[in-house]
Design a protein around this nucleic acid. Sequence first.
DNA 1: GTGCTCATATTGTGATCACATATTTGCGCG
DNA 2: CGCGCAAATATGTGATCACAATATGAGCAC
Lengths: 253, 253
Amino acid sequence: MNSVASHEGGLDDAAPGGQERDGETLAQKVFLQLRADILAGRIAPGKSLTIRGLAEGLGVSAMPVREALRRLISERALELQDNRRVRIPPMSIERFEELLHARVTLETEAAERALPYIDKERLAQLKQIDRAVEEASGRKDLDRWMELNFRFHSCIYEARPHSALVPLIESLWLQIAPFMRRALMEIEGHYVEDRHVEALAAIEARNRMGLRIAIEADIRDGISHIGNQLIESDTRKSLVANNLARRRITQAS
Amino acid sequence: MNSVASHEGGLDDAAPGGQERDGETLAQKVFLQLRADILAGRIAPGKSLTIRGLAEGLGVSAMPVREALRRLISERALELQDNRRVRIPPMSIERFEELLHARVTLETEAAERALPYIDKERLAQLKQIDRAVEEASGRKDLDRWMELNFRFHSCIYEARPHSALVPLIESLWLQIAPFMRRALMEIEGHYVEDRHVEALAAIEARNRMGLRIAIEADIRDGISHIGNQLIESDTRKSLVANNLARRRITQAS
DNA sequence: GTGCTCATATTGTGATCACATATTTGCGCG
DNA sequence: CGCGCAAATATGTGATCACAATATGAGCAC
């Protein structure tokens, strides 16, 4: 029941023909839905997504799903295998560390460049988001925690107008999020030191280097050191799953 | 005649039904074709691209063009306007400087991290590409020059396996290339100091900071100082074009 | 002439169909 | 019972059609 788009109702309305104009295009809705599923880690890595399957689950035709999948593929959130099938890219230690380093490089720079544009209003907004993060952390609500954590970071970087780094950072989050979610899920305590307060203090003090350090610490802490073991855990589980599947087939025959 | 896909033949073969399997999908071909057109600056900024128009020009149906456009949009090479129409995003001074800074941030880091992986063979390949760059520069072949310059940079960054920065850098090139091409076209001398030799020297000396400096200089030199005037030039031309169009319409009526 | 309104054309979006490939299932032979 | 091989199903890709919205251009009022 962890499957995506398992609900029948699908995306609200479904006029039989023509176009949707209430908000945006259907393809956009499907894209956002799948994107949220990925960011929240609701799609198991290795699970292959089929166009028709998702379309039926969401109550739409294949066309919007195709466009959404294509878009997610080009943002590297999904991977197009040789079979032409789509899946969440499997994580490897090398890829994980590359993504982490890329996040540090881009986000520290984006934060420093955004700092002069963070006004009182945005600072208040940041504090509000941080309170919500704390609250979600207390409730151990991982979905909400990840969403709010992303919002907190975005809210900093987006302060600078015309930023070219923000879309790139989003792509990195999409790539690393499914894995992070699983990582945090496995870690019992899920104890992540709150580096947000350091970041907020640096912002108030207009301390550029302090902000960089806080952001880097926030990215690295609690994640990097659990990377290896979890990837190994994932690999082991994959093998087990394969064996189970194979056995099941064998038994059925 | 600068229009894209103006040739009738289109993309080689066109079996009436079913799939293409010689190399890749038709959508992929269309994507690569449009991507090359954008990188080479063959599409004028502000020109709105229509699905049916491109499809007819390339000799394919609308479907592959739709997917290619979607992909280019999500890589920020194209922009989806409110009208649902697609165009090359107009350049502004702010956006240009943001893109330039992002390129410096990502490419210096990518270069330094790739440095340990550049072996003798790759170094030889780099020198070969640089010679070709020089040759294209001598022939004032802008298309070839831009393509080879991109190849030179990519060849450095791709030395490191699993790099997460490379796709992001490609996105930045796609965004800045149409404008760069026009910039180089307008500058009479097109005299760009060859920073490639500095980069090559730094690579041979395994000088990380030297490589960073060479890459940053290569990105900034000859481009940044012409940014402002060219953007103004573009804006002016746009206004003139609009006035002309308006006048033409007025005359016709 | 200028501005507005309405008819026509163009275009994007979504659905459906056709076909080739990939995958799974079923069957027969060892 | 295990192992190929063929039929059957599932799936991705591309083409075409229908429809709504926008853009375009003609016609009319002032």
